[in-house]
Amino acid sequence: MNSIINRFLSNLKWLLLRRQLGSYKSKVYISSKVTMKYPECIHFGCNVGIGKMTCFLPVKQYAGVRYNPQIIIGDNCMIGIRNSFACIDRIQIGNNVLFAGYVHITDHSHGYEDVTRPIALQTLISKGIVVIEDDCWLGFGSEILSGVHIGKHCIVAARAVVTKDVPAYSIVAGNPARIVKQYNFENQQWEKKI
């Protein structure tokens, strides 16, 4: 009985939410307690699953500055529990991307340059948009920071902090993340990087 009620409530929530979204294709599965601030800035592809307590937090205005944020999630993406997406410009996720739990992606940080003002009152700063191409897997507790472009078919290890671009067909780990393996198409295997 509880599963029927939960399914009904989930469908009702989706019916109300889809009118507010920037765009969506179809089949977006939203678990409980998902937060979507400014849903008009959020775009979903087809067959997207969103885990419990995930937050989509586009920032339209902060410290007197207006922004035009966009969070774009491609087709067949599965987002684990308690993920967070925060942007002032754009976070763009390709197709078939898997997210473990507690992944954090942001395209900005707090300004801190003016030491006479509290950090909370300073404008937000960014190194650029975040792009994650198709077929990637983001491990538990990983973080992707502003200005990062992750190429196709990459793996980000658990708790890695990605601060710079990652070429396609790479595995990164650590804080800051560095390449630990890359796929060699000539011998068709993953090779360790020293």
Rank of each mutant, 00 (worst) to 15 (best):
M1L: 06
F8G: 00
L12G: 01
L15F: 12
L15Y: 08
L17K: 11
R18F: 06
R18Y: 11
R19G: 15
Q20N: 12
L21G: 03
L21T: 13
S23C: 10
S23N: 14
S23E: 14
K25Y: 07
K27D: 15
V28Q: 13
Y29P: 08
Y29D: 13
T35R: 12
K37E: 10
K37C: 04
Y38E: 09
Y38R: 07
C41G: 00
G45K: 09
G45R: 07
G45N: 08
C46G: 11
V48W: 02
V48H: 04
G49V: 10
I50S: 07
I50W: 00
G51A: 07
M53Y: 14
T54K: 09
C55K: 14
V59A: 06
K60D: 04
Q61N: 08
Y62V: 11
A63N: 13
A63T: 15
V65P: 02
R66H: 09
R66G: 07
Y67S: 08
N68D: 09
I73N: 01
D75V: 10
G80Y: 02
S84P: 05
F85W: 15
F85R: 02
C87V: 06
I88T: 10
I88W: 02
N95P: 07
N96A: 05
V97N: 00
L98K: 13
A100I: 04
G101I: 00
V103E: 01
T106C: 11
D107W: 02
H108S: 09
S109Y: 03
H110K: 13
H110T: 02
G111W: 04
G111P: 01
G111F: 01
Y112A: 12
Y112L: 08
E113K: 15
V115C: 04
T116N: 12
I119L: 07
T123S: 10
T123K: 09
S126P: 06
S126V: 12
I129R: 14
V131R: 11
V131Q: 13
I132N: 03
D135R: 11
L138I: 13
L138N: 00
G139K: 03
G139V: 04
S146D: 12
I150S: 00
K152H: 08
H153P: 02
C154I: 05
I155A: 05
V156Y: 01
R159E: 08
V161W: 05
V162F: 05
V162Q: 02
T163N: 04
D165W: 08
P167C: 06
A168Q: 09
A168T: 04
S170W: 01
S170V: 12
S170R: 02
V172K: 08
N175I: 15
P176F: 03
I179W: 01
V180M: 04
K181A: 07
Q182W: 02
Q182K: 15
F185K: 11
F185M: 12
N187M: 11
Q189N: 13
E191I: 14
